[in-house]
């Protein structure tokens, strides 16, 4: 049914991942927008635990220049 919105499932819970590596840029990019901002839980569908882990990972990645603090390509 078009009216029924499917409840988002936490991707990490689904695949039973509990540690998010901050060096995994590909993974982190999926959960940030083009500007490098972390996506909200209501958009990404992450559970609280994994959202917290993700946030930590993104912030570590920023320190290590794996992720950008703010994207330059903003118009």
């Amino acid at each position: 049914m078009a009216m029924m919105r499917r409840r988002k499932i936490c991707r990490f819970c689904e695949n039973k991942i509990y540690y998010l590596d901050y060096k995994d840029e590909k993974m982190l990019r999926r959960f940030t927008n083009e500007r490098g901002k972390i996506l909200a839980r209501r958009i990404s569908g992450n559970c609280a635990i994994h959202q917290r882990n993700l946030t930590r990972a993104v912030k570590r990645a920023r320190v290590m220049a794996i992720m950008a603090f703010a994207s330059e390509s903003y118009r």
Partner: peptide
């Protein structure tokens, strides 16, 4: 190595 991209 864990992969979160396993299809649903």
């Amino acid at each position: 190595k864990e992969d979160y991209r396993i299809p649903r």
